[in-house]
Amino acid sequence: MKQNFQINGISCGGCVARVKKTLEEHPNIEKAEISLTPKGTTKITMNESLSVAELQKQLDRLNGYTITAI
């Protein structure tokens, strides 16, 4: 299952790498594809549906990133 999100706070390739790694550490996330154009556009492939709150909890391991559904 693929879902689209917007992650605010992403400004460079380093941000993309950190956020991608952190999201993919979640057992229900198979793959996170994050774009810099437009900044923070994200497609997440999941084994089972996760809420935005659950995804934000995963991102809270890092500082300065917020996720919203689009």
Rank of each mutant, 00 (worst) to 15 (best):
T45G: 05
Q58I: 14
N47M: 06
K43M: 12
C15R: 07
K39H: 08
H26E: 12
S51M: 14
N28C: 08
T68N: 10
T66E: 12
G9W: 03
A69Y: 05
T37Y: 03
Q6G: 01
N8R: 06
K2T: 09
M1N: 04
I29L: 02
N8F: 08
R18G: 07
L23I: 06
T66R: 10
S49Q: 13
S35D: 11
L62D: 11
I67M: 04
A53E: 15
I44R: 04
L23V: 08
K43Y: 08
K39C: 02
L59H: 02
I10W: 02
G40Y: 02
S51L: 14
K43V: 15
G9P: 04
T66A: 07
V52P: 07
E54C: 11
S51Y: 15
E48R: 13
Y65R: 03
S11N: 12
N4R: 12
L50Y: 11
G13M: 11
T68F: 01
E54H: 12
E24L: 00
L36Q: 08
K43T: 15
T37Q: 09
C15N: 10
I7R: 00
Q58C: 11
G64W: 13
K20I: 00
I67W: 03
Q58D: 03
S11W: 03
I29P: 00
I44P: 07
N28S: 11
Y65Q: 05
K20V: 00
Q3L: 05
S11Q: 10
P38M: 05
E24C: 01
Y65M: 04
G40C: 10
R61I: 11
S35P: 01
G13P: 06
V16M: 05
Y65L: 03
S49D: 13
V52Q: 14
R61G: 09
S11H: 13
Q58P: 03
L36D: 08
E48A: 12
K39R: 12
G14Y: 10
S51N: 13
I7H: 00
N63S: 15
M1D: 05
K39G: 02
Q56K: 13
N47K: 15
V52G: 10
T68Q: 12
Q6P: 00
M46R: 09
G13C: 09
K43S: 14
V19Q: 00
G9V: 04
